[in-house]
Amino acid sequence: MLEQLEQIYQEAQVSLAAAASSEALHEWESRTIGKKGAVTLLLRSTGQLPKEERAAFGKRANEVKELLDAAFAERETQIKEIELIRSLESGQVDITLPGRAHPVGGLHPSTQTLRELYHIWADMGFQVFRSRDVEDDDTNFTLLNIPEHHPARDMWDTFYTTTPGVILRTHTSPGQIRAMRELGENGTQPIRVILPGMCYRYEQITSRSEMQFHQLEGLVIGRNIRMSDLKGTITAFARRMFGAKAAVRFRASYFPFTEPSMEIDVECFLCGGQGCKVCKYAGWLEISGAGMVHPTVLRNGGYDPSVWSGFAFGMGPERMTMLKHRISDIRYFWGNDLRFLEQF
């Protein structure tokens, strides 16, 4: 029996080395060291041997079993490694094939810019006040210090409705009057709001001008609001919107409802102020019109201009979006072509 054991051991070592796959290995296992394997069966039959041979055989049989167990474990590790490498090799895909398309939603670029503006202004304590699109002539013009037939009216080409005195707002500024009258409590409360909204102008639609566009107006009313505050506030805004190093320039200008009035330019963030096509080689981009609230407007909003003062500014989200993303045609905004919208 001992001879039989040694023979089985020799053969088992050879056949283990020859086992090249998990299946062959497990076949070897059950044939050799499994429950019904040759070694196991031999071990179990130790009792049939004469008493004096039992100890020696048992010792050797256990030795063989342990050696084969160890050899099996080693071989198993080897084969698993080989098989893993093989499976990784055969599992390659062409990673240049296109991915599966999933529907991706998205916000309109104007909404994205408006939200950016809301966030920046909210951080500075400006809250959103919404005002109506269809306005009366008084609120859109007269109360803003733009009397009927005044040459300043030439600054806005207006859509009139068939109801006399009712127009589509040409700017968000009438919201100043509405905000002052609604929030000011008869000229006794400070105000700090932004007024976003759609505005309308009787203008031919071209790549540069639209009949409908968003505006975002800001209004601050307080007992001690100065032009230096306007400058500081706009400069802080520009740094948030256009970068910490954005240079800002204030040019005198004219709006009937502010005095002093100004246009605000930011150093062109596309060329760093060196001059490019977008900034028309001036190095500056116009981003806002602003000024100190005109005494007449303060009065019309219920405030005493000798005590109260304020500033206002207006900016165009579409224009800002166009500058930022080099959009050449403003008509893309309301065209809603998916090929445009999907770029945002």
Partner: peptide
């Protein structure tokens, strides 16, 4: 006052932070 600011130069007017009380939020 607008004329004074204009001829003096808007760029020479300082930038300040509003010292006024913030309206209720």
């Amino acid at each position: 006052i607008e004329e004074i600011a204009r001829i003096y130069g808007y760029d020479r007017i300082p930038d300040t932070i509003m010292a006024d009380a913030m309206p209720p939020q």
